[in-house]
């Protein structure tokens, strides 16, 4: 398993798409935060605004599934699916004599790490740097840091479950284009479910999904019960989707 993770890390470090996404997200994040700080782009009513972190308002863009899905699915397409289609290198990995479940877990761990770096770490780090360099000098108080720590901690947990869904799609389709298109359709569907009025049962189900949690975790205050609920939803979703992924991968015939 350690060998597989090392190999996946090596591949991630040499993945052009990964570096292109890092550069793009870093550039975009820097640009957006700069626009917010110079008041060219005025955002009001964001969760960061309510938390007294208006200089980080542009971060809210990066917490919207419709947006970050584009980043995650692109990475999934060009890091996971491509191994099944163009190069067919997944064959070598299976022939190498490792359990398929181990191969899947190694891929999922490294893919999740890559996704978190691009989608969570890069925007947050650039936001803080821009705020320090060009901001009003408010700085981050301990309360702010605790808020960001709690919100992003829970967000990352939900995000891991989301990455598992995209990984599952990538394994099922085995094609970059299909992975990206299907994941976009999936997030649009979840967005529609969120916005449209729905029956009580569906509402209740939706409120217990990671998609609802993506918004909830950024609430200014959360009770211990809400935090626990968020953790349980994130962990259970992640485990269940990963298990589905392993089952699918175990039965998948490699072309």
């Amino acid at each position: 398993m350690t060998n597989l993770i090392k190999a996946e890390m090596f591949k991630l470090q040499r993945n052009r798409t990964f570096w292109a996404l890092i550069a793009t997200v870093a550039g975009l994040s820097t640009f957006l935060h700069y626009l917010v700080i110079i008041d060219w782009w005025q955002m009001h009513g964001t969760v960061f605004d309510r938390a007294g972190l208006s200089e980080l308002d542009a971060l809210s863009t990066f917490t919207v599934p419709l947006f970050f899905n584009l980043i995650v699915s692109t990475l999934a397409g060009f890091f996971i699916s491509i191994e099944f289609s163009n190069s067919g290198v997944i064959r070598n990995q299976i022939i190498s004599g490792h359990k398929r479940s181990h191969i899947f877990i190694a891929k999922l761990l490294v893919f999740s790490l890559g996704s978190i770096i691009v989608t969570v770490l890069i925007p947050v780090i650039t936001a803080i740097i821009i705020a320090i360099l060009f901001g009003q000098g408010d700085g981050l108080s301990l309360t702010h840091a605790m808020y960001l720590g709690r919100a992003y901690g829970l967000f990352t947990l939900q995000f891991l479950a989301f990455a598992s869904i995209i990984m599952l799609l990538a394994i099922i389709t085995g094609d970059q284009g299909k992975t990206i298109i299907l994941s976009i359709l999936f997030t649009i569907a979840m967005f529609a479910v969120e916005k449209l009025s729905k029956p009580f049962f569906l509402e209740m189900v939706y409120e217990n999904t990671i998609f609802y949690q993506f918004t909830e975790v950024f609430q200014l205050t959360m009770t211990n019960g809400e935090i626990m609920k968020s953790i349980i939803i994130g962990v259970l979703s992640c485990m269940m989707i990963s298990l589905c992924g392993i089952l699918v991968f175990n039965r998948k015939e490699i072309k």
């Binding site: 591949k11 163009n86 190069s87 067919g88 290198v89 022939i95 190498s96």
Partner: peptide
């Protein structure tokens, strides 16, 4: 399988 090596159809390589 750990004692085997194989090329199936075309060689599976990382082009970049």
């Amino acid at each position: 399988q750990k004692r085997m090596g194989a090329i199936i159809e075309q060689p599976a390589l990382f082009p970049n």
